[in-house]
Structure formats: structure tokens, C-alpha cells
Design a protein around this nucleic acid. Structure first.
Lengths: 340, 340
DNA sequence: CTGTTAGCGCATTCAG
DNA sequence: CTGAATGCGCTAACAG
């Protein structure tokens, strides 16, 4: 390994000077500097970040804790975060919790050990795990900048950014009611997760406002995945009075439901209308095109990253921010037939 | 920050003993050990990984360089890698190059600075950037374990794992020929990328074997994304003698093509048959279901990770391995009508 | 402007 | 079995 000492030796100067020269700090003669740079390049010298941060207390490393990178929603947000933090020379360690609080805690410990400069936390159960919360608040209190993204807490002074899922679900359900539906099924992922809970609330709110009875039999919940949508829909289809419209808590669930509907050869939207949530790229490609609630994904990641960087760079405390992004209803053929 | 010294102080012992006690090395009296563990837990002590690795030369940090995490193929492979390396206590820093050689080099430098223990490199242009290659081979020669995944090189002694794309493309094209097609369009992403180049080869091989002329006008190439598929298909549709079947270099391209086909209200597969590549989760959900070449994604990541971990753990050199995974044709409705 | 020094937090000798 | 000493590679403070 080529260290700062080797560079100093070859350049016939001292490590201190090399350090200053390469970091553009302090005062170094123009010529000395050029010489050092030349040697460093020739030796392919790269400063050891561990040693550097041991001294400076700065790692330029962030932690990103998400449920699952292979979920298109999280990978889109991750991309937004990535692009923003790279701009300022940061990089991050990825942690997938798969929704498991134990694993979340493990990852948090790893981040802690890695001396991260900041932390972005994404979706998890609304009821926080006690151990996790304890460890997290310890970190927050010790001054670690933390941003919650698509996640919320009332007990921690941290920045938060998310999409107003209550409103999104309200828009979706309202749209179906507008089309004349009054038996609207809701396929949730999990109401123990913030997004799920809020979407349930928005769904109920729209029904109540329009004096439609909230029927528990029309609410199903089997995970935020295609399989869950498929199974829930099969259940609905077996009912004597089946729903005439479905609101799915995300697009992937909606796709699962579509599969089930297609199997029994019911026409969408004529026999059953369906709305999703997220507007993942492929929502426009399925046939019929999926009506869905769009939420800014990369944008949300970018904002989370910006909040974090601000807090890292700012000295002294700052009022915690809470940013609520607007969802937007995108109407396609799964609720309205476009055929003439 | 709570250091090993504070723990030692509270436990009325020395840092050296604390170190040994917490890492289960050396000999420490049962009672001393328990006491130390108790104190460490109470103080919420977490060893500083930077300091640790400065001493041990081991960071338990890997580098993962991919083109784009928001691409479902890469996020699936990433998940496989993640799960495997976590099993052995490693984590990784993510680098998205977006296919830019300059950025690849930047990321490589960052990895180098972070003292990663190993590196997984995914797809890039077949023609390697000179600077990048130079830096990379420097790292390899200095003993850094490197694995190429869905990427290839003949100039470096590193492990490699990828799917046989030539065979996959051959299977796809052969399937279309079997169905009676002889004007088969190929929509590629980029032939400068290994996967694209190989898929082009497999396509040509199948045509030639069946004595079908390779027509340059039936080959388009506008990027591995939906937009590219859409535009290429539009071009094909304007031809006097348009193709009766399409092989798309990946599923997302195929989706773009489907959009274009749907716009002119041509029936799939009756008027135009279409095959994709990758078998992403949603390939089964679009209507008609997309016939595609499946390749193991998480599996590929898992193997790449295993190769890397092996090489990290093994002492001494080992013959570089080259693993070629088998693709598999999945036939759905986009090539064969299932209606009775 | 440059060289020397000390110490970041830890693991690893080596005495005791 | 335990404690004191050393140095990993770097930066910051200070003396020259």
C-alpha cells in the first residue's frame, strides 16, 4: 500500500506538506505542490479514508436503510438519493431490512460502527421496535443527522419527507365513486406500515364522505406484493356480491389482482375497475393501462438527501422540517374505457 | 463518542483486555469478560470500524459497481449479492456509473480510498476505458479480489459469472423461426455492451443456421430502455415490409415496442409476435404475457458474491473461475395465442 | 513556507 | 490472565 510517507519520501518532503498539498489547504509553494501532485499520481496514491476519518471525524459515508432494494419504489428513491449525495462527495452503505425489526437493529449497529455522517431511514412498521427506537434516539441525541423518508415519528426531532398517502388514497377512491361505484374493495399491503395505514384511512375517508358504508369484508391485506394482490382478489371474486371496483395499495398488488381477474375472464374496466398506487414505470404498459396514484419517487429521494446534507453541513441545531409531497391521480384505461 | 478506553475505565481494566473480551480472542477470565460485556452494553459501545480496520487491514466493506440501481435487473442482482455478503458480515458501498466510463473511474477511486476488501463489477462497455482498466488492474495486481458479473475481460485474472446471452438470444430467435417467422426484427439496447453484443450474435446465429438473410434494416439499437424500444418499433412499423416478429434485447425494450404496436392497433401475437429477455417480474403481468428469455438474477448475484467471499477468505492465489449460467425460454402469449 | 510531533481508536505484541 | 506500549495512516498544530 502506498501511503503519504512514501509520497513524501519520493518527493523529498514531509508527510505534513504532502497532506496540505493534496488537500489544497494551508500554504504550499506552487512548485512543491506540483511536484507532489506529480509523484502522487505516478504512485497512484489514494489517501486512506479510514485513517483520514479517524483523525477528522468525517467519513463522507451515509447509511441508507430501506426494506428491499429490489422493490421498484425503493430503488427509484434510492437513485434520487444516490445522485444527490454524490454531488457533494458522499457515498452510502445500503441496508435492506426486509421489514424485520431485528435486522433493522443489526443494520443500525453496522452503520454506527461505520461512523456514518448521516442516516436516511425508509418505511417500517408504524409501531417502532423498542430496541431499535432506543438505539436510534441514542444516535440522534449524540448529534447524528437523520432523515425519515416515507416514514414518520412523533418522538424524535428529525427531518421527515413523505407523500400524503391519505390524500392519494382519497383521490383514488373518490375517482371510483365518481364513476358510480359503491362496492369498492381495498387490497392493502399491511396496515402496520405507515403507507398502508394512511391509504386505508384515505379510502375510508372517501367512502364516509359519500355516505358509503365501510364494509370490512371488502378490505383485504396480504402483503405489498403481487402474490398478496392475487390472493386477495381471488377471495373477493368468490363473494356472492363481489366488488365492482378495486383500490390496490400499490401497483404491484394491482398487477396481482389483474392476474386473478383475468383468470376468471372478467373485463377490466367494464366488469371490474381497478386503481393502483405509485405509478411505477410499467403501470402504463400493462393492458389495460393502470389508473394509479403517482408519487414523486426520485424527487422524494432527492429531497431526503438534500435535507440530510443541509443538516450535516449546517452547524448548530435547526428546526426539524416535515415535508409532505402531493400525490397525483393518473387516469388510464383500467377505470375508464377509452374505446370509442 | 464512547471508546474502548471509556469502557476499560468503567470496567476497571485496560483497553487491551476489553478488546480481547469483546472480540472473543485471547484469554480473558470468564468473570472479567462478563463484566466488560455488561459495561459495554450499558454504554452502548460500538467499536470504531475505521480504527479497527486501520489496524487489521480489514474493512468488511465491498464495492459494488453497477450501471443503474433503478433498473430491475440490476436491483435483483444487487439483492442476491446483498443477502449473500450479509451472511458473512460484509456490507457494500453502491456505485452507479450510468454507463459513463469517467464516472466508473471516479467510483473506483472512491472504493479504493475506502479500502474495500473486494469488488464486484457489473456490465459496462465491451471496449474498456483505458484509464479505468489501468487503475483496475493496479488494484487486481495489488491483491484486491475482484469478480465480474455480467461483464467480461480477457486481460485480467479475475472470477467471472454471467449468463450465456448468445444462447439465450439463439433460443428466442429460434423459437420465432419455429413459429414460421422469417422477417424477425431485433431491437437491441447497445452492441457496445457485452449483453447487447452477445444477443446480437445469438440472433444472427439462429438466422444463419436457418438460412435466413440477416437484414440490417431489421436491426435497431437505441438504448436498453422503454423509449428505445418504442422508437425502434415505430421505425419498423413504417417499413413497407414490416417484420412479423420482434426479438427485443430486454423486457423493458419489449414493453416499449408493445406500446408502439398497440398504438397502431396491431394484434399481438397474431400480427406481430414478440420476445423479450430477462423475465422481469412484470413480464407475466402485461397482456399479452410476454414470451421472454429468463435468466437467474438473484442467483447470479449470489454466485458472484460467493466467488468474491471465497477469494477473500482463501489465502494464496487460486485459478480464476468463469461461470456461465444457462438462460431459459419462457413461452407466453406474446408469441403463441392460447385462446381456444 | 516546511518539517516535526502528537494523537484519532483500536488490536497486538510482550512483559509481568 | 492482565496491562502497558506500539503503530496502523492521516491531519492539525506548532515550531522552525
Amino acid at each position: 500500500m502506498v501511503t503519504i510517507y512514501k509520497v513524501a519520501e519520493k518527493a523529498r518532503t514531509s508527510p505534513g506538506t504532502v497532506s496540505k498539498a493534496l488537500s489544497n489547504k494551508g500554504c504550499v509553494a506552487e512548485e512543491t505542490k506540483r511536484n507532489i501532485e506529480r509523484i502522487a499520481k505516478r504512485l497512484n496514491y489514494t489517501p486512506n479514508l479510514q485513517a483520514q476519518s479517524l483523525k477528522t471525524k468525517k467519513t463522507y459515508t451515509l447509511g441508507l436503510l430501506i426494506p428491499d432494494i429490489s422493490n421498484p419504489f425503493y430503488s427509484a428513491v434510492t437513485k434520487g438519493i444516490y445522485n444527490r449525495v454524490r454531488e457533494e462527495g458522499y457515498h452510502f452503505i445500503l441496508g435492506n431490512s426486509y421489514g424485520d425489526p431485528i435486522e433493522e437493529l443489526n443494520i443500525l449497529r453496522m452503520f454506527h460502527a461505520s461512523q456514518i455522517d448521516g442516516l436516511i431511514l425508509m418505511a417500517a412498521e408504524v409501531e417502532e421496535d423498542k430496541n431499535f427506537f432506543q438505539h436510534l434516539s441514542g444516535l440522534v441525541n449524540s448529534g447524528l443527522p437523520v432523515v425519515l423518508c416515507d416514514r414518520k415519528t412523533d418522538h424524535l426531532l428529525v427531518d421527515q419527507v413523505r407523500v400524503d398517502s391519505v390524500k392519494g388514497a382519497y383521490l383514488a377512491t373518490h375517482h371510483l365513486i365518481d364513476l358510480g361505484h359503491n362496492r369498492i374493495g381495498f387490497i392493502n399491503g399491511s396496515s402496520r406500515v405507515l403507507a398502508g395505514l394512511e391509504r386505508l384511512k384515505g379510502y375510508q375517508k372517501a367512502l364516509i364522505e359519500h355516505h358509503i358504508l365501510v364494509d370490512k369484508n371488502l378490505i383485504s391485506e396480504e402483503g405489498f406484493n403481487q402474490e398478496g394482490g392475487y390472493r386477495s382478489m381471488q377471495k373477493f371474486l368468490k363473494m356472492r356480491q363481489r366488488p365492482t371496483a378495486i383500490f390496490a395499495a400499490n401497483d404491484v398488488i394491482a398487477f396481482g389482482a389483474i392476474l386473478a381477474i383475468r383468470e376468471v375472464k372478467l373485463k377490466i374496466p367494464e366488469k371490474i375497475a381497478i386503481v393502483g398506487f405509485d405509478d411505477i414505470e410499467l403501470a402504463s404498459v400493462v393492458s389495460p393501462g393502470l389508473t394509479t396514484v403517482a408519487q414523486p419517487k426520485e424527487e422524494q429521494g432527492k429531497i431526503a438527501a438534500s435535507l440530510l446534507l443541509e443538516r450535516i453541513n449546517k452547524t448548530g441545531p435547526r428546526e426539524p422540517q416535515k415535508i409532505l409531497l402531493e400525490p397525483r391521480l393518473v387516469v388510464r384505461e383500467s377505470t375508464i374505457s377509452v374505446r370509442p
